[in-house]
């Protein structure tokens, strides 16, 4: 087998371990963190079932716009975004929607963009 052919065969796959790694890390966060995050922030909070001061404007700001808040956003937003991007890309391939090379750029690009936005918001809040 010529070197060139070997190169072509593996050219597409060199970045795949990164996506699978992010998928896996995001999967752990989605499974372990997100049930509690969704329950408290998206169900109990809007239903008024949390104590009034638990997520008041002042308390929510001080919790989120902090170093632990930055790490929390990384684990509860950024990694799950890459997990979702990976599943969406493979799901679209499975039902023959679009073209994988483009889907790949759109999905991982979108996840990266939203991740940068989320972390940027924490930093902006921290310094404001």
């Amino acid at each position: 087998m010529s070197m060139n052919k070997h190169d072509i065969q593996h050219k597409q796959a060199f970045d795949e371990p990164l996506w699978w790694g992010l998928f896996s890390a995001g999967g752990v966060c989605f499974a372990v963190l997100l049930p509690a995050v969704i329950l408290f922030i998206a169900v109990l909070l809007p239903l008024g079932l949390l104590p009034a001061e638990a997520l008041s404007y002042e308390r929510a700001s001080s919790l989120l716009f902090s170093v632990p808040g930055f790490l929390f956003v990384g684990a509860a937003v950024c990694l799950p975004l890459f997990h979702a991007a990976h599943r969406l890309r493979h799901g679209m391939f499975d039902i023959s929607v679009g073209n994988d090379a483009l889907n790949k750029k759109l999905m991982y690009g979108g996840a990266a963009l939203l991740s940068a936005l989320a972390l940027g918001l924490v930093v902006a809040g921290f310094f404001s």
Partner: peptide, 24 residues
């Protein structure tokens, strides 16, 4: 595979919440 669709919805809501928190 489809479990990520409502997940993405929640994350977008969460991002909107972060923007709102920054606004006041």
């Amino acid at each position: 595979e489809a479990t990520v669709l409502p997940l993405v919805f929640f994350i977008l809501c969460f991002l909107a919440g972060m923007v709102a928190l920054l606004q006041g």
